[in-house]
């Protein structure tokens, strides 16, 4: 396999991993706020704090990893997205600033504040919405060339129903993934009230999730027919995705096998993102940036892949160690440590 394709697969994998773990984090913020509003915070907050405080920095590194990887394997993509994303990207950074300080202040330092919980919850929905703009732009038609520079057509972006469909999908998916994971985690912690509450959230967000997915799918056909046709050729991947969606929901509904149901949710997104990604080929950014033609030079691509392999060799054992130490250590989860 060529280094571009290997690199792209690694990036795709990181995007997928970020989608899952960041959604858990972002959604948890929203649920924490919602619970506070509906006076149910005593049920949720301990659980959320216990899971989130050890992992948020790791989540953030996934994000950095993704945009570094994209821009270094495909410097032209870095150039186009970098030029276009000044405003959405800066918004993401400001919101990450708010979230980062939330962890520092609420969890390590000081008292609870309602305003902060609100900012924390709201940022959890706005960050995915702003990041999703990147996916929207990649369908093509949102950029303008002028005097040798690239600009984002803000009006086009803000008035196009497709971009709003993507935003809607991003936000709903975050809540859906997060509710499923937290249900599983609450179950593992033996926290009965939290499990019940979160299970109801998981069920609630299922219908919007599937509606949002279908809407986005339909809008792609208008925005970018070529991509849409490629995806239709991969119909079985999306079929699998829907199948896992149904199994996942069924398991949660039956109140059994929460671990398995979360795996189904991951598989649902795995196949959807895979179908979307393969259908996106050969363009990274439609009609502007191609995977093979616009990759970095072979020497750099190879060096990045070697660094990547070496890094994984070092990281995977460390990650397993940490997971075993607390995330999945029954005593820790139950709050005895």
């Amino acid at each position: 396999m060529s280094y571009e394709i290997l690199g792209l697969s690694a990036l795709w994998f990181f995007l997928f991993a970020y989608l899952i773990i960041a959604s858990i984090d972002f959604g948890a913020g929203f649920f924490a706020y919602y619970a506070l509003q509906t006076k149910k915070d005593h049920i949720l907050n301990r659980l959320i704090a216990r899971y989130l405080s050890p992992v948020w920095e790791i989540t953030n590194v996934f994000f950095i990893f993704f945009f570094y990887g994209l821009a270094f394997f495909f410097p032209d993509a870095g150039y186009y997205f970098g030029s276009a994303m000044l405003i959405p990207g800066s918004i993401v950074l400001l919101l990450i600033g708010i979230r980062g300080s939330f962890y520092a202040f609420e969890n390590y330092g000081s008292r609870k504040s309602k305003l902060y919980t609100f900012l924390y919850g709201a940022s959890g929905l706005f960050i995915p919405a702003a990041i999703a703009t990147g996916l929207t732009i990649s369908e093509g038609g949102f950029l303008r060339h002028e005097n040798g520079s690239v600009y984002l057509r803000y009006k086009e972006l803000l008035t196009n129903p497709f971009s709003w469909a993507v935003v809607f999908l991003a936000v709903v998916s975050v809540l859906y993934i997060s509710a499923h994971f937290l249900t599983y985690y609450a179950n593992k912690a033996g926290d009965e009230p939290a499990r019940k509450l979160l299970r109801s959230y998981a069920l609630f967000w299922a219908a919007p999730q599937i509606i949002a997915s279908l809407t986005a799918f339909i809008f792609i056909s208008r925005q970018n027919p070529a991509h849409y046709n490629n995806m239709l050729d991969l119909w079985w991947m999306f079929g699998l995705s829907v199948l896992f969606f149904l199994i996942g929901i069924y398991l949660v509904y039956r109140e059994s096998h929460y671990g398995l149901s979360f795996i189904c949710v991951m598989l649902q997104f795995f196949f959807a993102l895979l179908g979307y990604g393969i259908g996106h080929m050969p363009y990274l950014l439609y009609n502007e940036i191609q995977v093979t033609a616009d990759a970095t030079l072979p020497a750099m691509g190879t060096a990045l892949l070697i660094a990547f392999a070496g890094g994984l060799l070092m990281l995977i054992p460390s990650l397993i160690l940490v997971m075993r130490m607390f995330l999945f250590d029954a005593e820790y989860v139950k709050g005895k440590k």
Partner: peptide, 21 residues
């Protein structure tokens, strides 16, 4: 980016390593 990608990429691994431990 064609040239400095490698160290910046490795820097993320270093952060990762640090954050985990």
């Amino acid at each position: 980016g064609h040239v400095i990608g490698l160290p910046l990429f490795m820097e993320t691994f270093a952060f990762f390593f640090e954050a985990i431990f």
